[in-house]
Amino acid sequence: MARYVIQRTFPGGLDIGNDGAGAELVRGVIEKNATEGVTWLHSYVSRDRTATFCVYDGPSPEAVRAAADCNGLPVDSITEVSVLDPYSYGRQR
């Protein structure tokens, strides 16, 4: 399983309300991701809500794209990443 940051653009702005409908929407994405073996960990959203940076675990970039396709979500770029923790830097390994 690799970790990816997926950059998405929403020209009209992202609109997920913090209510029942929003929860339903998010749950739908999680469920469809699961069918592709992909896990959405969390996202960073720009202040104007037009760009998101989503942190995902998944088996391959193809699986990440297939999940996005299922959910009708755009994909600008997929970057494979690893964690750099500044406070434990140099202590590991």
């Binding site: 391959s60 970039p61 193809e62 794209r65 770029s77 997929i78």
Partner: peptide, 13 residues
């Protein structure tokens, strides 16, 4: 094929 699709999409791996 898998590799070349990744090259052309700019995907990792």
């Amino acid at each position: 094929v898998i590799g070349r699709v990744r090259v052309r999409r700019g995907d990792p791996g």
